[in-house]
């Protein structure tokens, strides 16, 4: 049993996913806090180059977990390959980003090892000797401090944006890279994935918008979207929405902000009737200023808002459009 912290970075088609740096930052912080050595791993086929990229950061060692069976990604191959690796190394903590890919294989991997995953964490705490991982519950209305009660390895996934990827510490002398070949029997892989593709070319690139007016369930009916559009127009911004609005077909899918849509960081994000479920917040919390209008004073969106208005959006938005137009005409 080696008491180490292992960060499994994510690569897709030979490129490191940026969110991997956030997880590595989390790993560095946890290593400093616990005194445990930090190691990292990347799994795939021909990923030694990526392992070397990670080795430039402050980390004790980087493993390149190799098998031709790991490309293209399948949950069967990733669970089998990582299980072999983890059983031979037995780290204490295994950290990964909470991406769609990790969500696809890590519960399977942990279950196959008789272990558990504390998923979608936003931070950690040290309570005496005990490590607690903080995650949001009830759509962000509450936070929970969760501990492991079973044996390590303990699996933790961190939410996109929970740590700063640009704060990852580099090192002058690169860490050693070790290639570990894993065996993945051909009949292990049952899914046959096709090429990854993008649906239609996106009509709007919301990431370039300086001002975004976004609507959520609180808009109630499709026809009410019109007043949000008018506000967006008055402000010279783009209209966007949370997932349920696009699911209902009230706005096209390319207007969706959140984990399954676009991630934006505009100058102003005006959230109308958006409660602030985690999946939405990860897509917009980088906005410089967030204004939220919601009738529920306990809506999680207010946790991250700079300006909060508890009230009926249908009463607030029309006079606001008037004020904005007045201000623009005067300037």
């Amino acid at each position: 049993m080696a008491d180490t912290i292992l960060v499994v970075v994510e690569q897709r088609e030979g490129k490191l996913n940026r969110v991997s740096w956030e997880t590595l930052t989390a790993g560095q912080a946890l290593a400093a806090e616990t005194g445990l050595p930090l190691e990292a791993a990347v799994a795939g086929s021909g990923v030694e180059k990526l392992a070397k990229e990670v080795a430039g950061k402050k980390v004790g060692k980087v493993y390149s977990i190799e098998s031709t069976g790991l490309e293209p990604y399948t949950p069967d191959a990733f669970a089998a390959g990582l299980k072999q690796f983890l059983e031979s190394r037995q780290p204490k903590l295994v950290l990964m980003p909470h991406t769609y890919q990790v969500r696809d294989f890590v519960p399977k991997l942990a279950t196959a090892m008789g272990r558990t995953v504390i998923s979608d964490c936003i931070g950690y705490k040290k309570d005496g000797e005990k490590l607690l991982f903080t995650r949001q519950m009830f759509q962000g209305k509450f936070a929970a401090d969760v501990s492991f009660t079973g044996d390590p390895p303990w699996f933790v996934t961190f939410q996109n944006g929970a740590f700063r990827g640009d704060k990852v510490e580099a090192t002058a002398s690169a860490a050693p890279v070790e290639t570990v070949n894993v065996e993945i029997a051909e009949n292990t892989i049952r899914n046959k994935p096709h090429e990854v593709f993008k649906e239609a070319k996106q009509a709007v690139d919301l990431t370039q918008a300086e001002i975004i007016v976004a609507v959520g369930r609180g808009i109630k009916e499709q026809k009410n979207i019109e007043i949000a559009k008018q506000l967006a127009e008055a402000l010279g911004g783009e209209i966007a929405a949370s997932r349920p609005i696009c699911d209902s077909g009230w706005l096209p899918m390319d207007r969706q902000i959140g984990s399954s849509g676009q991630t934006v960081a505009p100058k102003l994000y005006l959230a109308l009737g958006i409660s602030g479920a985690i999946q939405h917040i990860v897509g917009m919390k980088g906005a410089r200023t967030i204004i939220a209008v919601n009738k529920d004073s306990e809506a999680p969106i207010f946790e991250i808002a700079d300006y909060a208005i508890v009230g009926n959006l249908f009463e607030i938005v029309p006079p606001l459009i008037g004020e904005v137009k007045k201000a623009k005409a005067g300037s």
Binding site: R115, D145, V146, S147, F148, P300, D306, I309, I316, L320
Partner: peptide
């Protein structure tokens, strides 16, 4: 046995200094 345990559930700590704007709608606008 459950392999993980919720030690504590709580209202999240605010990370931002949120200003609440109050009053009649016209005033808020």
């Amino acid at each position: 046995g459950n392999l993980q345990k919720i030690e504590r559930l709580y209202v999240p700590h605010k990370t931002k200094n949120t200003q609440f704007l109050e009053g009649p709608p016209a005033e808020i606008a």
